[in-house]
């Protein structure tokens, strides 16, 4: 793998991990869902760099768009605050 592409993928992976930690840490559920969708989008870029364009398309269309819509509807129909202790 080219060294620049390698550095770029390291950056993407670190950002994905940060977004995942934020997604389970924030109190606002809508923000958590949006962090989750951003993580999915970055992972789809990583799939593209790993030479898997089919998987990248599938993840971008399903994981980042449809899944987020389903989450947002679920949050809208229930409540937005995470009242964890």
């Amino acid at each position: 793998m080219n060294i620049y592409i390698l550095i770029f993928s390291y950056l993407l992976l670190v950002l994905t991990i940060i977004l995942s930690i934020l997604a389970i840490h924030v109190k606002d559920l809508l923000a958590a869902v949006i962090f989750m969708g951003g993580g999915s989008l970055l992972v789809s870029l990583v799939f593209l760099l790993l030479q898997a364009p089919d998987v990248a398309m599938s993840e971008a269309a399903i994981g980042a768009a449809l899944t987020m819509a389903i989450y947002i509807v679920a949050v809208k129909k229930t409540e937005r605050e995470d009242n964890d202790d």
Partner: peptide, 27 residues
């Protein structure tokens, strides 16, 4: 986590991680 939506987010994260693992094995 005790919140149901957070639990589903956890499930989704596990799925994403396993997909990443499997694809990177094939590289």
């Amino acid at each position: 986590k005790k919140n149901l939506i957070k639990i589903i987010i956890g499930l989704d994260l596990i799925e994403t991680g396993i997909n990443l693992l499997i694809v990177s094995i094939g590289y």
